[in-house]
Nucleic acid binder design. Structure first.
Length: 553
DNA sequence: GCCGTTTTCGGCCCGACTGTTTTCAGTCG
């Protein structure tokens, strides 16, 4: 039982409490305790056995025994009681936008609503509008929200597809008749949102393979002469495309898509080509290889030679990393070690600025404490260079949080975290003003989008790119798979205007340092090469560039 | 539920927005 498992159970308790409890501070106490436990440096089991648990601020006579029970028995009777009190899947209702735990609690108490289907029926029967705190507009909003949630049900973030694809490949490898299997489709093209996973299976005996598929996927059905469809993990459609080994190249190309690309390729190639792999296929067709990420359209088929897209191994450092000083889950030491273990020559630490209260934004006093710790920890990861930065809020009027105090930092990521519903004109002006602040080094997650959750705010991209190029401000490619922001469809346009990019993880934990990889997907889809990405530069050049930027303040 | 040179009750991290209210609660970031 590690501290994260304890924290997860406390979080679950907190969610249940919100369903039925009017006092919002009780659930918040559990949440706060979860955060405290998550960020403990010491072993939780030790703290429990020594009784030191109660010296942790936020753990008293109510939560203390719960934590003790979890650590010693692996479960909590309080949580079991709560689970029995509510139907399983009640939290699924959270997928409806603008529906929170309070309202879900009321819907369950008064109407017995336990699922999205039941909620839809209740709203259509006009029962929701009469509930206390609800009304006609809320009822309609709920119905709209259900439509939104349903639409999203058939869409997945790319990492889910990669995960399922890898799992299926491993499972196929256990079947003797399978000679080879590759993930294709939108997952291979690294599209940010996918609907299914395509796998090309090379075999001489497709029937024998199909016989064994029910071990791995449910609801198997044929959807064409050479394709079988199933559902993995209860939700993800998987399409198995069968081919003989000598045709694997063409089968992989076709299953990878896009349709536009495949059609154009086959037209250009002129005839059906036999090839055991894709490289061979392109060679036979006398067409320079096109990376899967670049196959959304047929543009790259016109190229004379294969472009050298930026690769994760080109990255020598990164710049957007949170720690426990604000809303990160791991300490400065842990995050720096994670960067070093990734082979980085430099890493920029950025916690939130004071205006981001909800994310634990740092006052200038707390910045000093954070920076002292960074200075201490930097010695342990030398020769990796550590930069002291901040992710500072762009305030509604376009001025920067911290103001002149931004001088404290080696670099500044400027981001928007509030007032999303400004008009396009207002939002654009807000960002342009921030770009004029000489402290600003990087513009963070430009659109603010959360994939499958909310659209980004509307801005005039061209004006922002022009200003960023003129002011020598880097544009962040935020690699968080929920963001992947700026959208790759805009990047070429920005690059052509002379904008320089930095691929950042926006990491809130050690695990999320891997978001630099997802960031490179975005850059590759846009056709960017290493020389357009700032954090492929050697540390000396980066230091020099940042120093020059500092002197121009 | 937790905490206190505000010691046993009354506050708890802030602000915008929306809709349901007639002064505020829920949701979201």
């Amino acid at each position: 039982m590690d501290k994260y498992q304890v924290a997860r159970m406390l979080d679950e308790i907190a969610r249940y409490i919100q369903l039925g409890e009017t006092n919002p501070f009780k659930s918040r106490a559990f949440e706060r305790a979860a955060r405290r436990i998550e960020t403990l440096e010491r072993d939780i089991t030790e703290l429990v056995s020594s009784g030191e648990l109660y010296s942790i601020s936020g753990i008293g006579k109510g939560i203390g025994p719960v934590v003790t029970e979890i650590v010693t028995t692996g479960g909590a009777s309080y949580l079991e009681e709560l689970r029995e009190q509510y139907p399983p899947g009640i939290f699924d209702l959270l997928r409806v936008p603008n529906l929170g735990l309070k309202k879900i609690g009321v819907l369950y108490e008064k109407l017995g609503v336990t699922s999205i289907d039941e909620l839809e029926k209740a709203a259509k029967d006009n029962l929701v509008a009469d509930l206390p705190g609800f009304g006609k507009k809320t009822q309609q909003k709920i119905l709209d929200g259900i439509g939104f949630a349903r639409k999203r049900e058939s869409q997945f973030l790319l990492p889910r597809g990669l995960e399922v694809g890898e799992l299926i490949r491993e499972q196929l490898a256990t079947i003797d008749e399978v000679e080879d299997a590759e993930v294709a489709g939108s997952v291979r093209r690294r599209l940010e949102i996918i609907r299914n996973v395509n796998v090309v299976v090379s075999t001489r005996a497709p029937e024998r393979v199909i016989e064994q598929l029910p071990k791995f996927v449910a609801d198997l059905e044929a959807v064409g002469e050479t394709t079988v469809k199933g559902i993995a993990r209860g939700e993800m459609p998987v399409l198995f495309h069968f081919t003989f080994p000598e045709d694997f190249g063409l089968a992989l190309l076709r299953a990878t898509g896009s349709e536009e690309f495949v059609t154009a390729f086959e037209t250009k190639a002129g005839r059906k080509l036999k090839a055991r792999n894709e490289e061979q296929l392109f060679e036979k067709a006398a067409i320079p290889f096109v990376e899967p990420e670049r196959r959304e359209n047929a543009d790259d088929l016109k190229r004379k030679k294969r472009p050298s897209l930026v690769h994760p191994s080109d990255l020598r450092g990164t710049f957007h990393v949170h720690t426990t000083h604000s809303d990160g889950r791991n300490s400065v030491a842990d995050m720096l070690a994670a960067a070093r273990d990734r082979g980085f020559d430099y890493c920029g630490i950025t916690d939130h600025s004071v205006a981001a209260y909800y994310a634990g934004g740092l006052s200038t006093e707390r910045v000093k404490i954070q920076q002292a710790e960074i200075a201490r920890e930097a010695k342990n990861v030398a020769p990796m260079r550590v930069f002291k930065g901040t992710e500072a809020d762009i305030l509604p009027d376009g001025t920067m949080d911290y103001g002149e105090d931004l001088d404290m930092f080696d670099f500044v990521v400027a981001s928007i975290h509030s007032r999303f519903q400004m008009t396009e004109e207002e939002m654009t002006e807000r960002i342009l003003r921030a770009l004029d602040d000489p402290h600003v080094t990087i513009l963070g997650h430009l659109s603010g989008r959360r994939l499958l959750t909310r659209d980004g705010y509307r801005v005039d991209y061209d004006r922002i790119f022009d200003k960023a190029a003129a002011r020598n401000v880097l544009i962040e490619i935020n690699g968080n798979p929920q963001r992947l922001d700026v959208d790759w469809r805009w990047l070429r346009n920005a690059a052509d205007r002379g904008v320089m990019f930095t691929i950042n993880p926006d990491a809130h934990s050690i695990r999320e340092m891997s978001h630099v990889i997802s960031g490179t997907w975005v850059a590759r889809k846009a056709g960017l090469t290493a020389k357009e990405i700032f954090n492929t530069k050697p540390v000396e050049e980066v230091e020099e560039w940042l120093e020059k930027k500092r002197l121009s303040r």
